[in-house]
Simulated assay, not measured.
Amino acid sequence: MQKFIVLGHGYSEIFELKALLEYNHARVDKAIFFHHEDAPSTFSLVMKPVEKDFQALYTILRGLRNGPDGKMYEMIHNLCKEYGVEVVEMTSRDPKDFHETELFFQYMIGVLRLNHLIPQLK
């Protein structure tokens, strides 16, 4: 079971993300940037599955305001490089296209499973 856990929507979340990488880098599977057309990008730190196949995806939802050209993108990319975390970049629909954020998360779980970036449902 995969679960998106929203850290926030902006710059202050970089500190929590840094702590996650610093103290749990052995548990990190990969980092994924979701770029949205004409909207701020989303970032998820995908953890390795733990008990009962639970897998957390710590997310900064629409928090990278300038996408790949912004400072936050650069900071996150450098943190991932420092801890040897694989970075994946993809384009996805904007969370605002969905009536509820949870529907966006269900959509993204399907996309990530289809692209073999997270394990299939057991």
Score class of each variant (00 low, 15 high):
residue 120 Q to C: 07
residue 93 R to W: 00
residue 119 P to A: 07
residue 28 V to F: 03
residue 7 L to E: 11
residue 110 G to T: 00
residue 31 A to G: 15
residue 105 F to S: 07
residue 95 P to H: 04
residue 70 G to H: 12
residue 107 Y to E: 13
residue 99 H to A: 13
residue 72 M to E: 10
residue 60 I to R: 12
residue 10 G to K: 00
residue 41 S to T: 10
residue 35 H to L: 11
residue 63 G to S: 03
residue 98 F to V: 06
residue 93 R to N: 04
residue 109 I to K: 13
residue 113 R to N: 03
residue 54 F to Q: 04
residue 107 Y to P: 10
residue 113 R to C: 00
residue 8 G to K: 08
residue 7 L to W: 12
residue 2 Q to W: 02
residue 88 V to T: 14
residue 83 Y to T: 08
residue 2 Q to A: 14
residue 4 F to Q: 05
residue 74 E to I: 02
residue 16 E to C: 04
residue 101 T to A: 10
residue 92 S to Q: 03
residue 109 I to R: 13
residue 67 G to T: 02
residue 49 P to G: 11
residue 98 F to K: 12
residue 94 D to K: 05
residue 7 L to Q: 11
residue 21 L to A: 12
residue 77 H to K: 13
residue 74 E to Y: 06
residue 3 K to M: 02
residue 20 L to N: 14
residue 45 L to S: 02
residue 92 S to D: 01
residue 78 N to A: 13
residue 84 G to K: 01
residue 87 V to N: 09
residue 77 H to Y: 15
residue 45 L to W: 01
residue 119 P to L: 11
residue 37 E to Q: 14
residue 52 K to A: 08
residue 24 N to C: 06
residue 105 F to N: 10
residue 96 K to M: 12
residue 50 V to P: 00
residue 67 G to S: 15
residue 118 I to L: 04
residue 7 L to G: 11
residue 7 L to D: 09
residue 92 S to R: 00
residue 45 L to T: 01
residue 74 E to D: 14
residue 105 F to L: 07
residue 46 V to D: 05
residue 13 E to T: 14
residue 75 M to F: 01
residue 61 L to W: 01
residue 12 S to L: 11
residue 28 V to R: 12
residue 108 M to H: 08
residue 114 L to N: 15
residue 15 F to Y: 10
residue 84 G to A: 01
residue 90 M to V: 06
residue 26 A to S: 06
residue 9 H to V: 05
residue 117 L to R: 09
residue 47 M to R: 02
residue 81 K to H: 15
residue 65 R to F: 03
residue 108 M to F: 07
residue 41 S to I: 07
residue 66 N to K: 08
residue 121 L to T: 13
residue 96 K to G: 04
residue 91 T to P: 01
residue 40 P to C: 09
residue 101 T to E: 15
residue 84 G to N: 03
residue 69 D to P: 02
residue 22 E to K: 15
residue 36 H to P: 07
residue 104 F to C: 06
residue 49 P to I: 02
residue 67 G to Y: 01
residue 43 F to I: 02
residue 48 K to R: 15
residue 71 K to I: 08
residue 99 H to W: 05
residue 22 E to A: 04
residue 70 G to W: 14
residue 30 K to L: 06
residue 32 I to E: 05
residue 118 I to Q: 04
residue 103 L to E: 15
residue 94 D to R: 04
residue 65 R to C: 00
residue 93 R to K: 15
residue 122 K to R: 10
residue 113 R to L: 00
residue 64 L to M: 09
residue 102 E to C: 01
residue 108 M to G: 08
residue 29 D to V: 01
residue 90 M to H: 06
residue 56 A to P: 06
residue 67 G to K: 14
residue 42 T to F: 05
residue 70 G to E: 06
residue 62 R to G: 10
residue 8 G to E: 05
residue 44 S to W: 00
residue 107 Y to I: 04
residue 121 L to S: 13
residue 72 M to G: 04
residue 104 F to H: 13
residue 37 E to M: 06
residue 27 R to C: 05
residue 2 Q to V: 06
residue 33 F to A: 07
residue 24 N to L: 01
residue 57 L to D: 09
residue 26 A to T: 10
residue 87 V to F: 08
residue 13 E to S: 11
residue 61 L to F: 02
residue 100 E to A: 10
residue 14 I to Q: 12
residue 73 Y to Q: 08
